[in-house]
């Protein structure tokens, strides 16, 4: 237990030393959504119809920004090797890294998405569906993205490869997440897509740390 605490405390220290790392994704999200607003006609009511897709895709891309570096620094300075050799099972190490990525990148994005949704003309019910979907969906993005980041950690061109590998895997999350917002906009119940998202999250939480640790082991071997 103290080992897990040590890992999380280290992530907090690292985050405190490099603020730009976790300030950048929220800033990116705001800029992208603003640009969509500016790219459309002024006060175009149709913007609200595309808002679910815009917000979800912007969230996904913003989360991808920091994923590439999730394991990179640790791999380069040799920390990852020591983590592999530590008595703590590697899947717990991976789980801690993924959790910290979500707390530092995913959670701020979720919180920021609510006002941005209102900016794009979503009504209250739709904003609630958006936030609920993001709460369930962004951990999946962190998990799947973290797995791919672990696969590509030692590679020179990981920055290009990462989005290409993550995006097809994350299709269901975007469909259900944006679908929940659309259902809310049309006054339909939103529980079905949210349940699906929760199911995907359950699969991610249970399986991804294991495959992620296998990928990390492959990277140091």
């Amino acid at each position: 237990m103290s080992a897990v605490a040590a890992l999380l405390r280290r992530e907090a220290w690292l985050a405190a030393r490099s603020r730009s790392d976790w300030l950048m994704p929220p800033f990116f999200l705001v800029v992208v959504v603003t640009l969509f607003g500016l790219g459309a006609e002024p006060n175009d009511p149709r913007l609200a119809r595309f808002a679910p897709a815009i917000l979800w895709v912007a969230n996904l891309l913003a989360a991808l920004l920091t994923l590439e570096r999730l394991f990179r620094a640790d791999h380069e300075d040799g920390t990852l090797e020591q983590m592999v050799l530590s008595p703590l099972p590697l899947y717990l190490v991976a789980a801690c890294k993924l959790l910290s990525h979500w707390l530092l990148t995913g959670l701020p994005l979720v919180l920021l998405s609510a006002p941005l949704g209102a900016m794009l003309g979503l009504d209250t019910a739709a904003v609630v569906a958006l936030v609920a979907g993001l709460v369930l969906g962004t951990p999946c993005i962190s998990a799947v993205g973290g797995f791919v980041a672990a696969l590509t950690v030692g590679l020179p061109r990981a920055g290009l490869l990462l989005p290409v590998l993550v995006l097809p895997l994350i299709v269901p999350v975007v469909i259900f997440g944006a679908g929940a917002v659309r259902s809310a906009q049309q006054g339909l119940p939103v529980d079905a897509p949210l349940y699906f998202l929760a199911a995907i999250l359950a699969v991610c939480v249970t399986l991804v740390p294991w495959v992620c640790s296998a990928a990390l082991r492959n990277a140091v071997d």
Binding site: S2, A3, A5, A6, L7, R9, R10, W13, L14, R17, S18, A73, D74, E76, D77, G78, T79, E81, Q82, M83, S86, L88
Partner: peptide, 20 residues
Amino acid sequence: RNALSPSLTPRENLQFWAGL
């Protein structure tokens, strides 16, 4: 490779390894 995080102090690095 030293397995030290460059942005942390030696003390924090060692505390982390001890904890882990």
